[in-house]
Design a protein around this nucleic acid. Sequence first.
DNA 1: TTCATTTCTTAACTTAAGTGAACGAGTTTA
DNA 2: TAAACTCGTTCACTTAAGTTAAGAAATGAA
Lengths: 193, 193
Amino acid sequence: MQDILFDFISKYISLTEDERNAILSLDLFRSVKKGTTLLKEGQKSQEEYFVLKGCIRKYYIIDGEEKTTAFYTEMEGLVPHCVVSKNPSEYFISCVEDTILTVTNPDMGVDLNVKFPKFEIMCRILSEELLAKQQINFDEFKTSSPEQRYLNLLQKRPDLIQRVPQHQLASYLGIKPQSLSRLRARILEKSKE
Amino acid sequence: MQDILFDFISKYISLTEDERNAILSLDLFRSVKKGTTLLKEGQKSQEEYFVLKGCIRKYYIIDGEEKTTAFYTEMEGLVPHCVVSKNPSEYFISCVEDTILTVTNPDMGVDLNVKFPKFEIMCRILSEELLAKQQINFDEFKTSSPEQRYLNLLQKRPDLIQRVPQHQLASYLGIKPQSLSRLRARILEKSKE
DNA sequence: TTCATTTCTTAACTTAAGTGAACGAGTTTA
DNA sequence: TAAACTCGTTCACTTAAGTTAAGAAATGAA
């Protein structure tokens, strides 16, 4: 399981045996069952997550309705906003599938960064990459219709459509579950012609 | 003019006289007239911008139509995606108003980071803050209707609605100019009752 | 298995956004 | 100054998403 993590890290920096052991000694790995809630609205958690296997989602509850705004799958990391802001969380995080992830907190990051400055570099690169990706995603979302967004998702993350319930996908696309159903039927109808 | 920049930096790190001079010696400041295009689709620019005064916008041209996806005003910085990806730009950047900004390139950043490691720290903090803000923004966009988005903007950045043309605001809100007009009329109508 | 719950789809109706066209006000250009 | 543009608004019409409700299918628990 560790191998997945080290493979990922090796894309950004190379680690010595010592450094690997330092990481392993932190005991980061956790297995969580489908449906487990990792973070609740109102909590002041300090936990950061990195998904090794499985899928977790972020969602708000607005007027009693769940609004899923993000999914994180293999090789994707999530620093909840409350960790950065030190305020109570505005949202929930829970497991869509049985999931294996690493759980860290900012102090551990600081420790590692002091011992191994390489880490600071990797974190900066990761954060910049993520920001760039995020902005492109946001732009695509703004400039396209729900139908285009769905077709786009079908291209870019076909796995998500398989592994995630429709009603969660719907709010991820910014629409209601009924509209997603209808939209899918419409696309199917078009493709028949 | 420099004071604005140093005031901003001082929120994150404190600078010595030497460091200030090193920054000033780089000759970063540029004044640009309203309407000037800083970056065109297809270009491989290496320029990063930080707005000291004025307003710039990022827009795509899709099917011959301008789609504005972001505005950057005082104290906001922008690293175009093409700088990170080294690919031709997917979008344009131009000035909504007469604007004063700093223009840097990644090499200058690297130089500064080597001479003054503080800079690396500030960049990381900025990038993390920005990512967090960006994600909250995206979540809000996904979970609200065009009308809610407009009302939200009215709360959070009332200045934008004054200084930016309506048709640019419209695509920023993910809708057509006509729809924004109608939506505003609708809100006005409601508030009369 | 059976019952309850969740999830997905369908349908009818409402509401709002997209589209195409027209108009007036304000700007720019020749 | 006149013509050409740009910008915002309005209107009529089309299309798609929101809403409410109902029912079928899948899932989970007793």
